[in-house]
């Protein structure tokens, strides 16, 4: 891979160059500041980078700011960005993911850890071109650029420009990498769009993109001002992790999201009113769960939300059948 490593510490730069060429014979370029990195990626004489490593704490422009600027460049919208962090404060890591980071490596480096993280990024790059196959962007929608290709219903999609919404694979990395103690007080739950298959069938590519991004905005708005991260996992289901001991009342949250969606006054592309609702699954506490156990909790949250969506529709059908029979 062609890798750009950005750090203001010359020792880190040397270490990374040595490590990366040793573990995978990668082609490594370096920059010692955010502005220098932006100059390099913007230089037409430089070939595109497949992966970017960013230190978080740099003077002038932090790695988090640089990550946001790189994500705004269409050429780097899907490129794996790994944050290099010695920051013990979890809020830095949260902000890095919110700015578009896909993973992180902690300092001081463990060679096996760096090898594993770089290989994961490389695998994702080969499998899906970096992040999820498709990216939805609110800013793009505002420019009314119709989407050409409709994503598959089950595909996770990266949504940009919505507060707290991150790439699905980054979400998995975030959950698995955080230490068990950092997870203390965190809860994960799923929010599923009801009748998603019907809505998908009736939507154009652009319409489906709007449906997903609008729902993500509604969820994001309703979770503020708490600390949270959201990812779209495909099939109309969003996964949310909330922190700081915040235990959401999911019934009230669901009502608030549905009210927000209703107030958005949404329409299909053919002018029909788009009226849909979401529901929440069972929340899963992440107390002292790390690695695979934390991912199991995410899977349970995902399944529970989808089961709830099916159950609600079934109950509604049974209600109408009873009404008609009566």
């Amino acid at each position: 891979m062609r890798i750009l490593a950005v750090d203001d510490d010359p020792i880190i730069i040397e270490l990374l160059s040595e490590l990366l060429t040793t573990i995978g014979q990668h082609d490594v370029e370096t920059a010692c500041s955010g502005p220098e990195a932006l100059k390099i990626v913007g230089d037409p004489d430089h070939k595109h980078f497949d992966c970017i490593l960013l230190d978080i704490q740099m003077p002038g422009m932090t790695g988090i700011e640089l990550c946001g600027k790189l994500r705004a460049d269409p050429d780097y919208a899907r490129t794996p960005i790994l944050m290099i962090t010695a920051m013990s404060d979890k809020s830095y890591i949260d902000r890095a993911f919110s700015a578009g980071a896909t993973d992180y490596i902690t300092k001081p480096f463990d060679i096996d850890e760096v090898r594993f993280r770089i290989k994961s990024a490389e695998a994702r790059l080969q499998e899906a071109g970096g992040m999820t196959r498709k990216i939805f962007s609110v800013n793009k929608l505002k420019q009314q650029q119709p989407a050409n290709e409709k994503v598959r219903l089950n595909d996770p999609v990266t949504i940009f420009d919505v507060d707290g919404v991150i790439d699905y694979y980054a979400f998995e990395n975030y959950i698995t990498q955080l230490s068990r103690s950092s997870m203390f007080g965190s809860t994960v739950f799923g929010i599923a769009i009801r009748q998603i298959e019907k809505l998908y069938r009736e939507s154009t590519a652009f319409g489906f993109e709007c449906l997903i991004t609008d729902t993500s905005e509604a969820i994001s708005d309703c979770l503020k001002p708490n600390n949270f991260l959201i990812a779209y996992a495909g099939n109309g289901t969003f996964l949310c992790v909330v922190e700081g001991g915040f235990r959401p009342d999911l019934e009230k949250l669901t009502d608030a999201i549905n009210l927000t969606l209703h107030q958005m006054d949404l329409y299909f592309c053919d002018g029909r009113k788009l009226d849909f609702r979401v529901c929440a699954g069972q929340p899963q506490r992440l107390i002292w769960r790390g690695g695979k156990s934390a991912i199991d909790a995410v899977i349970q949250a995902h399944e529970s939300a989808e089961e709830e969506a099916i159950k609600r529709e079934k109950m509604l059908n049974e209600f109408w059948i009873t009404e008609q029979a009566g």
């Binding site: 510490d9 020792i11 880190i12 270490l15 704490q57 003077p59 010695a86 300092k107 001081p108 480096f109 463990d110 060679i111």
Partner: peptide, 14 residues
């Protein structure tokens, strides 16, 4: 603090 931060980030690897 910035100097110590840099040292803390590299010394272990070395």
């Amino acid at each position: 603090q910035m100097i110590l931060h840099k040292i803390a980030g590299t010394a272990g690897t070395l």
